[in-house]
Write a protein that binds this DNA or RNA. Structure first.
Lengths: 319, 319
DNA sequence: GTTCGGGAGGAAAACGTATTCCTCCCGTTC
DNA sequence: GAACGGGAGGAATACGTTTTCCTCCCGAAC
């Protein structure tokens, strides 16, 4: 490349980067040659010389998970703005695969790591000599940088909305008690509803079927309940379906809220669901920003809890 | 690193790679030093020297799309077996962003590219001086390597299944006629059903709502229809719901098939859907294999059509 | 004792960039 | 006319591998 412009490699570098002191004419000549050859400076050489790879590893336990994906795209979005690229690593929740990926990423001298998963339970930190940000599932070490969803706050938000609508006999239906996200949402609901929560939270599974079953359970004990706060959109959808089948109108008789704002569920539900948006894309974006700052030497340890956002639809508002 | 073992860089390389001729004792000494230092050879140097980066770019128009994701994870899976890693690029369907990503990937000297999207319409080829494989959406240039889903064959498979069950009055409900996947599925259904297709295919949208509407439309013209072949699981789910609401039993009165085998839809439907699995993960895996072969100099031009697989569930089989 | 062979490991070049330092030349000034 | 200053661009080095070629040394053989 440098040869074509009749110039040394060092000079070519200066010309293309606008550094050093060169005549304008030389600079142009080099640029012309580069354009003509379709020359793009080799990032590997640059990386070797600069010490930075402008690459970060994305380690996920499940890259096809519903939660990991928005996080990934958010991260990709924020990183691409900074000319960084993402190396994708799907560990499939296998510690061996994870170890293997970590050494591979280290061999590639990534500038940092984003670690994410499909559950909100804190995870054991990864050993890494570059900055790490945990997204969605925090690290067990509070000195690490983590950014997570505010499950508790989201449930509070949903319940307050229902209370604001005058609902007084509220039931909470959610996923398995062994899932942290379920217990945190339940705690938030209980705290915000107080005496208005007329039944202990119903733990089950994250399915429409459970939503349908739970409605029957709940109505048996509280025939005049007027609101159901659900731990997921799928559950809420099941709840709506069964309520309709039993002749109760949503939202006039019973208001229903979902959780996750999973478009395909929340919008296809009859009626469409008022639900708690987890803002996962923002979460991924935030994780990437924190990582960039950490790479630049401005680390921010601790767990950041991203506020949720309540999306209002007909399941609480009428038509 | 080499210094610690009291050995030259070249010798260290030979020791760690098991090449050259070294005494066993020396080899061990170097390996010990490496282990002790936690030393991992720098992939950038290796890449510069070998001419290969062991990296491929994944260019997708929509990394959060329901179709792109399984393709991505399949590709990641197949590539990681070959020690290759994926650089993620989400163009958001913006040609400018795509161009930018292509030059960035070229600067990183990726060994190849996988191009994917969220629609099956052929797309304009990308300019690249490394091998490219198109997954899901083929290139318009038949000389390129593409691997796509067999929408036509999938519909044939679904219809044959229904014919095998003795159904004789079949209706096809699918997405917008401007979507190639809709027209190809419709063509397959028409071809396989012949005179058993008692109504022109109903084109609409990919939604449950359209499924519900279409059932009413169809029943008005063919009150005794006994099977509905749907262009998507969402449509099929809507179809099932409305049939039930109208008092028709699925599958005893009307058998219903979906398309896509989108687990969350197909399994949550009442009843669960017999549906055409597109095998997108296999498609991604296949794309990666073709790319690896192309990188190794064994290019296979042309469009490969991956066969679909019919998944049987209660919407055609009874309980 | 000399030569040959072969094994062990170092030296050097190559991959491509960025940066520092050096040289050379030209113009200006005294 | 000589000296100084500064601008332009080349040379060298560093980043970290891999690979080829060389050298050196030791043992064996004649």
């Amino acid at each position: 490349m440098a040869a074509l412009a009749g110039v040394s490699a060092g000079t070519a570098s200066k010309a293309l980067n606008g550094t050093g002191s060169l005549r304008a004419e030389t600079r142009e000549r080099v640029r012309d040659a580069a354009r003509q050859l379709g020359f793009t400076p080799d990032a590997r050489g640059r990386s070797l010389s600069s010490g930075r790879s402008y690459t970060v590893g994305l380690v996920t336990t499940d890259s096809s998970g519903r939660f990991s994906i928005p996080v990934m795209t958010g991260a990709e979005d924020a990183l691409s703005a900074g000319e960084l690229m993402l190396l994708l690593c799907d560990t499939r929740d296998d510690p061996l695969r994870e170890r293997h990926y970590l050494t591979t990423l280290s061999a590639r001298r990534v500038d940092g790591l984003i670690v994410t998963g499909r559950r909100t339970e804190p995870r054991e930190p990864v050993r890494s000599d570059v900055p790490v940000v945990y997204a969605f599932n925090p690290s067990t070490d509070p000195e690490d940088t983590s950014v997570v969803v505010d499950d508790h706050g989201g449930a509070v938000e949903a319940v307050r909305h229902l209370l604001g609508l005058g609902r007084q006999r509220i039931v909470h239906v959610t996923g398995p008690a062994r899932h942290l996200s379920a217990t945190e949402r339940a705690a938030g609901a209980r705290e915000a509803a107080g005496a208005q929560l007329v039944l202990e939270p119903l733990f089950g599974e994250w399915s429409e079927r459970w939503g349908r079953q739970a409605v029957e359970l709940a109505l048996r004990q509280v025939p005049d309940l007027d609101a159901v706060v659900c731990g997921s959109d799928q559950i809420a959808r099941g709840v709506c379906d069964r309520l309709r089948e039993l002749g109760r109108h949503v939202p006039d008789d019973v208001a229903v809220t979902g959780f996750d704002n999973w478009a395909v569920m929340a919008e296809a539900s009859r009626p469409p669901l008022t639900t708690v948006d987890l803002r996962l894309t923002d979460l991924g974006r935030r994780a990437a920003q924190l990582l960039i700052e950490a790479i630049d030497g401005r680390r921010q340890p601790g767990v950041q809890r991203l506020p949720t956002r309540l999306v209002l639809r007909e399941s609480t508002l009428g038509v």
